[in-house]
Design a protein around this nucleic acid. Structure first.
Lengths: 201, 201
DNA sequence: GACAACTCGTACAACAGTGTTCGGGTTACC
DNA sequence: GGTAACCCGAACACTGTTGTACGAGTTGTC
């Protein structure tokens, strides 16, 4: 909207902006635990009243979208700092380690978004982080250190599904959170290696 | 002596039993598409009235459990017919092909059950089919054709998560159903191969 | 053919969640 | 210190779903 200093949309007060932050963090926490978390729960987690939340987000749908957007932006920012210029296989390992925590938190939020947001909107928001993994895999294929006999989209999907599944295992107590990144990497690296030779050149 | 054994429902009428069947199939179909399918939708899909469904299942929870049980029984029966005595890697391929359709249908039903059934009940029902894959993987590890450097539970989980993820991709139009089994097998076989594998080096 | 089993549709109560309204209290900011 | 922005809690209407009740119609089975 117009941010002209014409006193129409005046400056938000400091505590209000901070509360928006609190609400988004609470939403990510609650929706991460339970994709069907209530506005009341989220508000309580944020330490605010339910009505106050509606003062900042016009609907539950708006809040879910905002939470997912923040989560994906956080993740994309974290991933942007990584050095992925070396061996794509080592880079893939780095990517997995870094995005593990993100995916673990985003899992149920994404699920919640899939239910409440219009179809396609989620994919749209999720496009940027996914593109990062996709670009990495494409480079590895060009360099011959990753297999090229499977569709790129499929490989990106497998990466995503395994991480999401591991996150579910952790929340259900079937897997220790500390072990997850290593297991994922140990499993997916050979899965993505070229069929002919796993040579380390 | 009059053998007046007091049966609650002495003899169910034929059409009633057939309707129970219809309801369960409808439940599997609807819950497979949408884990939040309502009793009304399920009844309509079965071609029956909503009240009639309550005549056979006392609650939504009971219906979900019955549907999941039938699905898992069907799947376990189908898997029991497979010949898995040969090379465990070929057997794994066979297992994937066979259980793909089952998993695709069961995916959302399982999700629905996780929400409505008491925690642990799902795992209990799911134990038998999971044990089949687990036994297969264990045998492959003993024979040295599958890797032993990862926990068995993790490998079973990966198998499950990738199939479930592929099912989600199919329902969202990102993947052709016909391609799925091949892609899954091509991806997981190298992932499960021993590190210094027989065909390598 | 008669009876019981089964089904149908509508209607109802109960419950949970969303989104809004209102009046009164608190607090940041100039 | 004054004002407007902000927060609070309770109350309300609305929606959708579950589970139950009733009366009447239909159909399998003996």
């Amino acid at each position: 909207m117009a941010q002209q200093h014409t006193e129409g949309p005046p400056v938000r007060r400091a505590d209000a902006r901070q509360n928006v932050d609190r609400i988004l963090e609470a939403a990510i926490t609650c929706l991460g635990r339970d994709a069907h978390a209530t506005m009341g729960e989220i508000a309580a987690t944020a330490g605010l009243g339910r009505v106050t939340v509606y003062g900042h987000f016009s609907s539950r749908e708006a809040l879910v979208e905002a939470a997912l957007t923040r989560l994906l932006d956080q993740g994309d920012a974290a991933l942007a700092d990584l050095d992925l210029t070396g061996d794509p296989r080592a880079a893939l390992r780095t990517l997995i380690e870094a995005s593990w925590l993100l995916t673990a938190r985003a899992g149920a939020v994404l699920e919640s978004a899939l239910e409440t947001l219009p179809p396609g909107r989620v994919q749209e928001l999720h496009a940027k982080p996914a593109r990062r993994a996709e670009a990495l895999i494409r480079r590895g294929r060009r360099d011959g250190v990753l297999r090229s006999d499977l569709p790129v989209d499929w490989m990106v999907g497998v990466l995503h599904h395994v991480m999401k599944g591991a996150a579910a295992d952790v929340t259900q107590g079937r897997l220790a959170a500390n072990d997850a990144p290593r297991l994922i990497a140990e499993t997916l690296l050979p899965a993505f290696a070229p069929p002919g030779g796993p040579a380390d050149r």
